[in-house]
Computed example of a mutant assay.
Amino acid sequence: MLQETAYHGALGEAFAAQSETSSYNAYIDRPAMLALAGDVAGLRILDVGCGPGHYAAALTERGATVVGIDGSAELLAHSRSRTGDTVDLRQHDLETPLDFAADASFDLVICALVIHHVRARGQLLAEIIRALRPGGRLLISTTHPAADWHHFGDSYFSREWVDLPVKDHDDLAIHFQRSTIEEFLGELLSAGFALETLIEPRPAPALRAIDPDAFERLSTRPSLLAASLLRP
């Protein structure tokens, strides 16, 4: 199984295809994160772990100037196909400092379903807060610890690195570190952020017509966490 921070090779291609219509990506995380973003017209935004470019495209359409970074060449290719020349896309290893970003150069940073893959989380959060202007915001989402606990069936307090098989791809898995809500928020607050909003997003109503069983299931149990934080 692949165990990379970025989704390389076949894993990148599988995720690009899945993210188009996946309940978790298309009907829970994206609607929630874009709702948290609100009015972004005129803002300069950094999309950390931009993947196949769904968030970058949506934020650009809303009038933002977006810089997207990802470690995966495969996902950046999909992002370029989706955004054309409207987004500044860069291949960048999230385990390394954001050396391209000047201090206080972004109004908003979005980090969607990425942070649990990163080993150097403290470094990344420190770099994000450095790159944000005072009063700027970080929007971040992750897997819900209770959902991971339910799936893996052991201790809620586990901090193990685990492999989650990719649907319809027995040879591929997503590698990430489990956490608790306490640890997730603790890392963000320790980095210097102030919590503005914490949500446990439910599926968008549009999912009911497409997959009523998934809609009912995901409406009654947590799947993701999302938060908006301020840089003082």
Rank of each mutant, 00 (worst) to 15 (best):
L113M: 12
L46S: 00
L75H: 12
V67L: 05
P97A: 03
L43A: 03
S72H: 01
R62E: 11
A41S: 15
L113N: 06
D93S: 10
L46R: 00
V109F: 10
T65P: 13
R90V: 02
F100H: 07
R121E: 13
V66S: 00
L43G: 02
A120K: 08
R121Y: 11
D39S: 06
D107S: 02
C50R: 03
T83F: 04
G51P: 07
E74F: 11
V87N: 02
I45T: 01
Q91E: 15
L75K: 08
I45H: 01
D85C: 12
D93K: 11
D39K: 12
C111Y: 14
I110A: 13
E61S: 09
G53F: 00
S81F: 15
A77F: 04
R119T: 14
L94H: 06
L59P: 00
H78G: 12
D107L: 04
D107F: 05
S79I: 05
F106Y: 01
S72Q: 05
S105T: 01
C111H: 11
A73T: 14
A101E: 00
A77K: 05
E95M: 02
R119M: 14
A73H: 13
A73R: 13
H78N: 09
R90S: 03
D103I: 05
V40W: 00
L59C: 05
T83D: 02
D70Q: 03
G53A: 00
D93C: 09
H117A: 13
S81G: 15
G84K: 09
A102N: 15
A73N: 11
Q91I: 09
A73V: 15
D47L: 08
A120W: 07
R82S: 08
A112L: 07
R119A: 14
D107M: 01
S79M: 08
V48C: 07
T60P: 01
I45V: 04
I110P: 10
A73E: 14
R119Q: 15
A102S: 15
R82E: 03
R121P: 12
D47H: 08
D107I: 07
I69Q: 04
A104W: 01
D99W: 07
V48Q: 03
T65D: 14
G71A: 12
H117V: 12
A56N: 00
Q123S: 14
Q123R: 14
D107N: 02
T60K: 04
R80I: 06
H117R: 09
L46A: 00
V66M: 01
D99S: 10
